[in-house]
Simulated scan of single mutants.
Amino acid sequence: MTWLVTGGAGYIGAHVVRALAAAGLDSVVIDDVSSGHRSFVPDGIPFVRGTILDRELVERTLREHRATGVIHVAGFKYAGVSVQRPLHTYAQNVEGTRVVLEAMAAADVTNLVFSSSAAVYGTPDVPLVTEDLPKRPASPYGESKLIGEWLIADQARATADSDAPLRHTSLRYFNVVGSADPAVYDTSPHNLFPIVFEALLAGRTPRINGDDYDTPDGTNVRDYVHVGDIAAAHAVAARRLEAGDRLEPAYNLGSQNGLSVREIMDAMARVTGIAFTPEIAPRRPGDPDRIVATGELAARDLEWRNRHTVDEMVRTGWEARRAARAR
């Protein structure tokens, strides 16, 4: 039994590949390495270099490896940049998902775990985001992930009475951080952890965008979850779909409590041993005070839980980044 991991050479996808191996599940990777890295794919894992927009390639890979399912992680994940590049975002995330579904149908592959995003909710004004909250995405990226969920649900309905009904679930999460393998680290130029790491390595002072939010310490609160925990939930979802278990259409992989940007900065100084006082910059337009999701449904069905403290999140990410620098 083999699972195709689209985007398996990326930061999250490469961790998913490792989590599948730990769960005793084989995998094959498709990635165009536009933002991923071939070196992130472990030795012995079949790697196909190409785009998910190539339906023939996706279908051929599914057939050649006798795939039992797909974990669809590939996509353009930069919410801010998606505002400037909406057509590119839709091509990668909406058309890409449609092509994957079409290839799956042609190859009679019926299990799908979709890497969605809590960006589908936009900026909800509630203490905890639950799965049934109205969806109001605030960027083309969030919209593209929501449309991807719609495409999957529509295909499931269309195939429900067929010999090969689509069985699926979508996993929504916010800020994925840390590392579960020193060979893999977050290379995004837009995420908080790598931004701070790069500043510290370059001798610059990290900055906080706004300290006058309606939160206990004045900095905004976000949902930070460890990439190893995220990857493990994907593997559990795959195993359960493969076993024929029924899963919910979507799950939040949330921290329940959240962390403020200042708490992250304090942990950065504490763990790295580099003392600094963050510079305070103006607020970014549209940044809400707090966005945190509950993970109760995922805890019930996907063995989801936060296994890492904030210091462990920082330490594992920092060690992986420094290991990469030393290579």
Rank of each mutant, 00 (worst) to 15 (best):
L57K: 04
P206T: 09
A199M: 01
E279K: 13
N252L: 11
G286F: 14
I230E: 14
A107F: 04
V16H: 07
A298D: 08
Y90S: 12
V81R: 12
E56V: 11
Y141C: 12
D108Y: 12
E319Q: 13
L53R: 03
T294N: 12
A23I: 01
G24W: 09
T123Y: 03
Y185S: 15
V81D: 10
G273H: 13
R207L: 00
P206W: 12
W3Y: 08
E242L: 14
Y78C: 15
A74G: 09
S179W: 04
T272C: 14
R157F: 01
V70M: 08
V28P: 02
G10Y: 03
R327S: 14
N220A: 06
P42L: 02
R290H: 06
T89E: 12
T219F: 10
D266C: 04
P288Q: 11
L200P: 11
P278M: 02
D132N: 08
M313D: 00
M313V: 06
S117G: 02
G273A: 14
G96Q: 04
G122C: 02
V5N: 05
P165W: 01
N93Q: 08
E95M: 09
R222K: 12
P194K: 07
R60D: 12
E59T: 05
V33K: 10
E131W: 05
H88F: 14
A183P: 08
I208S: 01
E149V: 10
A118H: 02
T110W: 04
D163L: 12
R98Y: 14
A23Q: 05
P194R: 10
A153I: 03
W318I: 06
T277P: 06
R239G: 11
K77N: 11
R246P: 12
P182C: 01
Y78R: 15
S27Y: 07
I291F: 08
R240Y: 09
L201N: 11
G148A: 12
A323V: 05
L241G: 09
V5R: 03
A298V: 11
S144R: 05
F114V: 02
V17H: 01
V58F: 03
D245G: 10
